[in-house]
């Protein structure tokens, strides 16, 4: 029966059985990747908006607020990336996608599709947060704005440099990891650490975006568009800078060769067997 597997319990405790990952069609794989980006960004934007609204719930020390915000955001990124990193690489950030495209490890069309789904996920996530709170708590849905004294140029450069750091870390642990591919098991923790550092530093100056989708969703639902372009151009320039650093200076040139033995089975997904 076509849907019988939905009602059959799954267990891998049977020693006579072996899990064989079947080859997946390109269309289905691409669909799963886009859905992973959509749902991942949805939940990330929800948590990111919620962290700032929770920090501003009542009168409290502004430094403690920043600690709460950056810890919640960093660990949210780590948890969500861990949960779906096996599907799409789970970038959740148009700046990271631009960085991956710059390195050549991701196609341009794939990148455009990823960014579209990330923005749609950000919209839905911000809408969910708006619907989750009464009006007097939702304020501006934590849309990012520049602090007093920070002008457009400085805001742009702060976002650019800090996002280049984040994309630099993502590319180092998740893309250019030929020296130890298993480090990708712990890559989400590295990305979470980078988000904690970046958001903690920038929160009081530019709102700590590092992510155009994160700024786009709350901006739409709170109608806060003042200097919004900084949060697109800054992170994207940062992603390009980090991608160029890795591609030109730091990447290890590895060769792509034919496997030494040729009687592999093409039906096995990503694994050659004799």
């Amino acid at each position: 029966m076509p849907f019988l597997h939905l009602f059959t319990p799954y267990t891998n405790a049977d020693n006579t059985k072996l899990i064989l990952r079947v080859n997946e069609s390109r269309l289905r794989l691409f669909t799963r990747q886009l859905l992973a980006e959509f749902f991942g960004t949805l939940f990330v934007v929800y948590i990111v908006s919620g962290s700032t609204l929770a920090a501003n719930f009542a009168v409290s020390d502004p430094i403690v607020r920043v600690c709460l915000i950056c810890l919640v955001q960093g660990f949210a990124f780590a948890a969500i990336i861990w949960s779906i990193s096996g599907i799409s690489g789970c970038q959740l950030n148009p700046a990271v996608t631009v960085g991956c495209v710059t390195t050549g490890r991701m196609g341009i069309l794939n990148g455009i599709a990823f960014i579209i789904f990330q923005c749609v996920g950000a919209l839905v996530g911000a809408g969910m947060m708006k619907a989750s709170l009464p009006t007097f708590y939702e304020r501006d849905l934590s849309a990012t704005t520049l602090a007093t004294g920070v002008n457009v140029a400085r805001g742009f450069f702060l976002e650019m440099v800090t996002t280049s750091f984040l994309v630099f870390v993502v590319l180092g642990v998740a893309v250019y990891n030929e020296w130890d591919p298993k480090i990708s098991r712990v890559a989400p923790l590295a990305i979470g650490c980078a988000v904690i550092a970046g958001v903690g530093f920038l929160n009081l100056f530019t709102g700590g975006s590092l992510n155009p989708a994160r700024s786009f969703g709350p901006a739409v639902f709170s109608d806060t568009w003042h200097r919004h372009y900084i949060y697109w151009f800054g992170p994207i320039c940062g992603g390009i800078i980090a991608g160029l650093f890795w591609r030109i200076f730091l990447s290890e040139k590895v060769l792509l060769i034919d496997r030494p033995y040729t009687d592999f089975h093409r039906s096995t997904y990503g694994t050659a067997t004799k």
């Binding site: 290890e252 590895v254 060769l255 792509l256 060769i257 496997r259 592999f264 990503g270 050659a272």
Partner: peptide
């Protein structure tokens, strides 16, 4: 290339 069973990565 990790999803291509006919190729493998060789570190020079």
């Amino acid at each position: 290339p990790l999803k291509d069973p006919s190729k493998m990565i060789y570190r020079r």
